[in-house]
Write a protein that binds this DNA or RNA. Sequence first.
DNA 1: CTGTTGTTTCTGTCTGTACAGAAACAACAG
DNA 2: CTGTTGTTTCTGTACAGACAGAAACAACAG
Lengths: 198, 198
Amino acid sequence: MNVRDNRSDWTELAVPVGSPSSTGMNEMRPVVQRFVLHWGEMGARWGINRTVAQVHALLFLAERPLNADDITGALAVARSNVSTSLKELAGWDLVKTVHIMGDRRDHFETLHDPWEMFRRVMAERRRREFDPTAVELAACVAQAQAENEPEAVRDRLQRMRAFFVSMGAAHDALKDVPPTILAKTLSAGAAVRRLFGG
Amino acid sequence: MNVRDNRSDWTELAVPVGSPSSTGMNEMRPVVQRFVLHWGEMGARWGINRTVAQVHALLFLAERPLNADDITGALAVARSNVSTSLKELAGWDLVKTVHIMGDRRDHFETLHDPWEMFRRVMAERRRREFDPTAVELAACVAQAQAENEPEAVRDRLQRMRAFFVSMGAAHDALKDVPPTILAKTLSAGAAVRRLFGG
DNA sequence: CTGTTGTTTCTGTCTGTACAGAAACAACAG
DNA sequence: CTGTTGTTTCTGTACAGACAGAAACAACAG
């Protein structure tokens, strides 16, 4: 009994044909495919690996936790890449590993709440990119001072730094607001406008 | 008199050595270089072409409008790419062309207010990427309905769509708030927390 | 007209990244 | 032990994007 024969019958997101294609690929149904492809493109535009984003999209629509072979079959990518992508998603805190009784394989699932997803992605991007840039900016401000840069240069670096400080504060103020509150408050809109004197 | 001889003495951001290097390259001073390089990296991470981001960074620190040759000299990239990058930045509404008396060449300058920069980038990204995705999601929701996708799939697409609608509303509520107000309100933080019941 | 300036387009090249596929390895169940 | 599962690493390849440099072109000043 080899791996191919042992893969689970994964029909939830698959086209309901008689049997899987000879390639071992498990075709996704049209909407699923559409969403997965678009999500992949969007991710790529924002600096997320296309395949990683596709894996995420697939898990987002999956009705049950999928194992690596399910994903390999659906997306038709090498298993090694699925493994890497899952690890990457775990690094973003977007997937978790679950286990199913009687099955030794790892299964993966992702959040189904877009707000919570957004929150975690923001937190990670902040940690990885925003904070280091803020540090770099502070260093630039100091260096500009030390090296007697002209007033204008020092001023602009300082403004940029201040901007980063403010954005950091904004993130701090919002990062722990429960998604449901965020959604309601933002959807209403009026309160937000009022706060900002609109 | 060729182009090289005709280029302006561009010393504001340059290392104050006796003469420009034989390559025609105009070396930036350390802080400027540091900022330009870092900005380039950040841009690349967020899907902005590295060179485009570098041109932007250079203009951000420049004390006067620069012409294409200034930029070519400072960044040591081909003139054609500078031209393309400037056009790209113009497309983001981040640079404008200005003219200097007695000089036929175009000169370029960028905003010096990070808040306003941010506002414009957000507006553009929304137009280019967010809105189309929102449309796509609406289509996915409709298609999922039409093709009798399982409840779970329809529900998740719908949630994602709702998320995009809310984010759009949030952007609408904030996009026209004057940067100064935004900065003050966000920096304070307390009001924001209050609004969201923190 | 000629020289300057700027844009656009083309070609070739280079580089980084993604990726497949294989292999080695580790962990573990039975 | 053997077979399964999963991760990691390696090699080679393929592709997309970035880029330089040349060339053609347009606009315009003098």
